[in-house]
Amino acid sequence: MSTADTTYTARRTHQDRFVTLRGLRHHLLQWGDSSLVTPERPLLVMLHGWMDVGASFQFAVDALREERCIVAMDWRGFGLSDNGPSDSYWFPDYLGDLDALLDQLSPDAPVDLLGHSMGGNVVMSYAGVRPARIRRLINLEGFGLPDMPPELAPKRVADWLDELKTPQQLKPYPSLEAVAERLIKTNPRLAAEKARWLAPHWSREVDGEWIILGDPAHKRTNPVLYRKAEIVAGWSRIEAPTLWIEGDSTDITKWWGNRYPREDFESRLGVVKQLERHVLANAGHMLHHDQPEALAAHLENFLG
């Protein structure tokens, strides 16, 4: 790519907001005014995945035909939000941050809640413990993780202790173009002009190099086991109509091999009471980048 090439132009511009949640400054992107919020069209909250940022939803927001108030948050340790106060990140903290966010943005009315990947797992768990706070729920490829049996615990804790002794690092990049190329390497379907638009939202310049806006501590092993039974217990308590969307080219075996067979995930999704499912053609895990128009059409039909 060359700097002479075009960059994506956003159809809907966002406002940057900052709120303090549980002692940490969090960055929000807001599209549309709060005056657009009604009981039939409540606030839509979007939550990104691991090593991503809230701006990642820009292409899907642009593809929506109708104006509504939308907020995307950078999780703690990502984007322009503060890093965590410790040297590790815990899944319950994401739930706590989301609860505090809704306390500020919509304390008295349910919201429509969307999450991608890690964010999809957070919103599913949250909807199970705070069912009354969600009107409609959307999960974009939040598959979760393989069940972890108890005998894995000692080694995971030992790995975590070992990793605490060594600072984690992310590779720096010499230019924004190099960041955009890295985004395309991760997702070859990502159009070059979109990669250029994302690059400055995904990184910042420090001493002549471009650093990814993600705390390297996210790379550490999590010593807390992922327990399927606990996840299923939460998902079974979801009351909101739920939309599941995945890309037709997503292959979860490349992440976990045979440790997480598809039928295992299907058994988890099967406990959700009101479930609508769609598969997007020519889309992978970053389906909101690959097919934003098709995604937006499903969102509008589902959200009404």
Rank of each mutant, 00 (worst) to 15 (best):
D97V: 05
Q291W: 09
L43T: 01
A180T: 06
V122A: 07
W202E: 12
V272Q: 09
Y8C: 09
R220F: 09
M1H: 10
E67M: 11
N282P: 00
E230V: 14
E177F: 02
D16P: 04
L47P: 13
L145W: 05
P42H: 03
H201G: 09
A217N: 14
A158G: 11
D162F: 13
W50F: 15
L24P: 11
K165H: 07
R17L: 13
N121E: 11
V157W: 09
K254G: 02
A55T: 03
G144W: 04
H218K: 13
R259A: 15
D162V: 12
L299M: 15
E263P: 09
L269M: 14
A178G: 10
V272R: 10
T20N: 08
I245C: 07
R237Q: 14
K254E: 08
R76C: 09
G84I: 03
L102A: 05
E293Y: 07
K254H: 06
E163R: 07
P149W: 08
Q15T: 13
E177H: 08
P110R: 00
T221C: 00
A296Y: 08
Q274Y: 08
V271E: 10
W160G: 03
L64R: 11
H278F: 15
W160Q: 03
R156C: 12
L161E: 15
E266M: 14
Q30N: 04
F59G: 01
L243A: 00
R182G: 02
Y89A: 02
V179N: 01
R182I: 05
D264L: 13
P42L: 02
P292S: 08
A296G: 02
L190K: 01
E177W: 05
